[in-house]
């Protein structure tokens, strides 16, 4: 079996905020009726997380669930346990019109940490990232410069950002430019 490698092999950049590619992460796209009790139970069993509200993430002991669209969740878990998580989801969703697919190797995850983290993203996405508007547990699908991306705010005030693996280098580069020392705006 070949050795799995993340898109940028945990590359990191230290600017007025720290931008890091977080390495391998298990990601599952789950499509289905988010209001169904069966799907709720399946997500609970697989990750321990509840179904998130609109534009929110929830955390459980074995993973996270993020609201992607009215009929789609992104499940995050350990890279090693993706297949088990999918097996649990699929088994619990028998008879339900739903689909769980492993997308771990199709995506890249970045972490933006530090006091200037909000600013780094605010320069690149058309999203209100002020402390009052975007709070811990908030999740947003938007764009980063020219490509689609989704990000959320952790409890420790660091952002995590998911994008397609094919644009990982581009996203890392624009995040680096945005986090360059001397580029602080000092507004957020």
């Amino acid at each position: 079996m070949s050795n799995a490698v993340s898109a940028l092999n945990s590359a990191s950049f230290e600017g007025f905020a720290t931008v890091t590619e977080t390495g391998l992460r298990g990601m599952i796209t789950l499509r289905g009726d988010l209001s169904s009790a069966k799907l709720k139970a399946a997500v609970k069993a697989a990750t321990g997380a509840a179904i998130p509200d609109v534009r929110r993430v929830t955390t459980g002991k074995d993973g996270m669930a993020a609201w992607m669209s009215p009929d789609e969740l992104l499940i995050l878990c350990d890279y090693a346990s993706v297949n088990d998580t999918i097996a649990t989801l699929t088994a619990k969703l028998t008879g339900e019109h739903a689909l769980a697919v492993n997308v771990s190797d199709a995506r890249a995850v970045f972490r933006i940490a530090g006091d200037g983290a909000r600013e780094v993203l605010a320069k690149l996405a058309p999203v209100d990232l002020s402390a009052g508007a975007f709070q811990a547990g908030d999740f947003r699908r938007s764009r980063i410069a020219q490509v689609a991306a989704a990000f959320w705010l952790n409890d420790d005030n660091s952002f995590e950002l998911v994008c397609f693996r094919s644009v990982a280098q581009y996203v890392f580069d624009v995040l680096k430019v945005s986090a360059q020392p001397g580029g602080e705006v000092g507004f957020l």
Binding site: V54, R55, W67, S69, P126, R140
Partner: peptide, 12 residues
């Protein structure tokens, strides 16, 4: 109307 965000043109 689905995610409730005030999306600007470039997101649409």
């Amino acid at each position: 109307p689905y995610c409730g965000v005030d999306a600007e043109e470039t997101e649409l």
